[in-house]
């Protein structure tokens, strides 16, 4: 089609000066972003606490990290990134007005996240079989506390994704009513971002 039929002046008249003006907005609810900030703060305290404890008890932490499976941490990182990717695609599909496709992509995102949960549960069971639990030492207290807290966020995220998938499937979102979808997607990306910091802290460094 011919895009040149609109001069800049015509677009300015109706309040559209350029493409950037159209897009310059915060995705989702402001309340969700404050919630995300609160969550990030809590996790920042836990991560810094973990790093300080490691410096104070380096022998225990080296021994503890050796008992973890780095490959499981890697698989979980790859699954969460992939899940986040499908949520981003689902949001794009919803922006295009394709609620059914969006809901299907959200289901894929959740199935990928189920791999994360299965791996995490297997890792916990494996540690329990070695008589390792939250009271074993400082490393495992922090390990179980941080990873379980993160797992709870994954489960909450999956409930949110289910809720928005059902609404998307019914085509209840549209261009003027998509903040709920965006807020849910942002929450999921935050959970992914937290694991990206958690993974090297516990499994790599």
């Amino acid at each position: 089609m011919n895009h040149s039929i609109h001069s800049e002046a015509e677009l300015t008249l109706i309040g559209i000066t350029n493409e950037k003006t159209l897009e310059k907005r915060l995705p989702g609810d402001l309340a969700m972003w404050f919630f995300i900030l609160a969550e990030l703060t809590v996790f920042a305290i836990l991560f810094i606490g973990f790093a300080v404890s490691e410096q104070l008890n380096s022998a225990i932490f080296i021994e503890g990290k050796a008992k973890l499976h780095q490959m499981l941490g890697l698989i979980n990182t790859l699954t969460l990134i992939t899940s986040s990717f499908f949520v981003a695609l689902a949001l794009n599909a919803m922006h295009a007005g394709d609620g059914k496709k969006s809901a299907k992509l959200l289901v894929v995102a959740k199935l990928v996240a189920c791999v994360y949960i299965a791996v995490k549960v297997w890792e916990y069971m494996s540690l329990f079989e070695q008589n390792i639990d939250i009271e074993t030492n400082t490393f495992f207290t922090l390990y179980f506390m941080i990873t379980f807290f993160h797992l709870m966020h994954i489960l909450l995220g999956m409930v949110i994704l289910t809720f928005i998938a059902v609404k998307a499937n019914k085509n209840e979102y549209n261009a003027s009513n998509i903040t709920g979808f965006e807020a849910g997607a942002s929450y999921w990306h935050m959970v992914d971002m937290l694991w990206i910091i958690l993974f090297p802290l516990i499994y790599v460094i």
């Binding site: 310059k24 915060l26 995705p27 942002s186």
Partner: peptide, 9 residues
């Protein structure tokens, strides 16, 4: 990219 904050305030 994922959170689309490049286009946010």
């Amino acid at each position: 990219i994922f959170m689309e904050l490049a286009q946010a305030p």
